[in-house]
Amino acid sequence: MNITRGFTGRPRVDDPGLPPGQYDAGDEWPVLSAEVTPDLAPADWTFRIDGLVADPRTWDWEQAHALPASAYEGAIHCVTSWSKFGVRFGGVSLDAFLDVVRPRGSATHVVAYAHTGYTTSLPLSDVTGGRAWIAWEYDGRPLPAEHGGPARLLVPHLYFWKSAKWIAGLRLLDHDEPGFWEGNGYHPRGNPWEEQRYSGD
């Protein structure tokens, strides 16, 4: 890295919760979707898991809500450099859905896809073990449409483009199939603690 003449940057904060290259966005929650925000009612929302699973299955809003409730409280990190702390999401752990469809041993990756057509790819190990949710509440209220409501994928330990808004389903694969941003030069995994922003990081 070459020093930029005269650049000092914002005051340094010693915040162990802040990944490298990120700043605390405070109360702001920027919206960065590339698609038109869909007009999607809960009654029209469905979530499907198929691909390398024993029992492919589609849940509607009521069926998904019948699964055990699970919450996430913590930080989220966007690749454009902001992080947001103390966010509270409510929904269902993705493990609860996966337990029903029973992934095959050959499954290594998932493609998450949205009702709008957006896609993102993740290693299966990043969406299991209590680290991923289907979230429909934010701060105790219904998740706003511009933030992915009625329901979005939530994978808070990775950059937030992995947390697909308006989630429609997961397809389990035995290989990595790049999604929307991964096919646009972004990193296949997107771990903020290793600053995996772009391909090659």
Binding site: T8, G9, G21, T80
Partner: peptide, 16 residues
């Protein structure tokens, strides 16, 4: 594009 400014202590700020 992404650009990066780097301070003398190594602190870097990136923006799109």
């Amino acid at each position: 594009l992404v650009l990066r400014l780097v301070a003398e202590d190594g602190y870097a700020a990136q923006r799109h």
